[in-house]
Design a protein around this nucleic acid. Structure first.
Lengths: 113, 113
DNA sequence: CATAATACTATACATAACATAGTACTATGT
DNA sequence: ACATAGTACTATGTTATGTATAGTATTATG
């Protein structure tokens, strides 16, 4: 992937990554930054720290997520766990719906234009 | 659609709309701003002037599009027609491929996370 | 003759992905 | 005992795109 495509991908991911975070948190109940990065990697997306951590902070600040610190019982670095707030739970279905509409519009343009 | 969802949609569209412009221009050979706005509306997307015209200028400036002015023979306002440049033609398949990968990643997260 | 529709230009703003640097603890190998 | 890699988070600045808004100019309609 060359530089132009890379920059375009950065734009395409806007909004999309936030939706992905909400999806994973809804399925799992709660999770934390480092684990999310690894799960995204497993899904075929490379999301690095500089992208995810600021994103989680924003989403929390916007009231989409709740958070609390947890220290592993077997010692280890404290982790900041996030879960969906009421607002986040309401937003996610609307987002998925909007995303599907976008896909449908592209499909229409590909066959009918 | 409330304000929060509206702002999120504005983010989700980043990159996506550029791909849509390239798709339509590839299918049709060439087109101009006003016609594109109407075609997007037909596909279910509302894209207004303030979004599309600056976008076409940027894409032209980036070398993704070629453009030339045409005055309708039966009189009427001159139109600026755009078509794919070589770079645009090379980019589009890569973009569509990337978009499909994104869809696949979301599908994975929805079922496996 | 006024209004709406067609068609484009130009400027300024808000926001998210990304890069980068920094902090701090744990586990592993030698 | 010590260096290295891995885990886990914070903070700041840059860049690019969608959007809003205002302005210009022509044609068609009632």
């Amino acid at each position: 992937m060359n530089e132009v495509e890379q920059k375009w991908l950065a734009q395409l991911r806007k909004g999309f990554l936030e939706m992905c975070v909400l999806v994973v948190l809804r399925e799992q109940g709660s999770s934390y930054g480092f684990a999310l990065i690894q799960q995204f990697q497993a899904s075929g997306m490379e999301v690095n720290e500089g992208t995810l951590y600021p994103m989680l902070n924003r989403m929390h600040k916007n009231g989409w997520l709740e958070s609390n610190w947890e220290t592993p019982t077997d010692s280890g670095h404290p982790r900041r766990f996030y879960s969906l707030s009421k607002l986040g739970s309401r937003l996610l279905p609307a987002m998925i719906d909007t995303f599907r509409q976008q896909q449908a519009a592209l499909a229409y343009l590909l066959e009918k234009s």
